[in-house]
């Protein structure tokens, strides 16, 4: 699950999940939920893969979201379904979505960038929590 939290000029994303791969997948959904008003209007018709080398947990989450944002901006591909595997080599992600169609997709924010500010991933009693602030 994910929600937004207060940040004066920008937008904070707070994500909770039972395990780390789900946390990463949910974080991607949170990112696209900030971009498009209703994620349910996106059809998971196209598939793309993302491979990232291992790094610190926080940096890997940052890189994953950043890669999706870059592909959205250059290929105009909106995604709403994600699968993530994490192992020693790094992250293997799959995202499903479709090209932006302004007639069907009401856009919400232009996310300029993912920021490192107050970026965190931490264990909780029932899983994991991540917080990330995106620049609007």
């Amino acid at each position: 699950m994910h929600e937004v939290f207060e940040h004066t000029a920008d937008l904070g994303l707070r994500i909770r999940a039972a395990d780390l791969p789900t946390l990463f997948a949910e974080a991607a959904a949170a990112l696209f939920a900030a971009i498009v008003e209703d994620l349910n209007t996106v059809r998971p018709e196209q598939r793309m893969e993302v491979e990232l080398p291992a790094d610190e947990r926080e940096y890997l989450l940052f890189d994953w979201l950043n890669e999706l944002l870059y592909r959205y901006e250059t290929q105009h591909l909106l995604c709403n379904r994600f699968e993530v595997k994490l192992d020693e080599a790094g992250l293997h992600g799959i995202a499903w979505g479709e090209p932006l169609d302004r007639d069907r997709h009401a856009l919400s924010h232009e996310v300029k960038a993912i920021t490192y500010h107050a970026l965190k991933i931490e264990p909780t009693a029932d899983g994991w929590l991540a917080e990330i602030i995106v620049d609007i």
Binding site: T8, A9, D10, T115, Y116, H117, I133
Partner: peptide, 9 residues
Amino acid sequence: IHWGYGFCI
């Protein structure tokens, strides 16, 4: 000024 990231705005 307001709260930014790293630097304040």
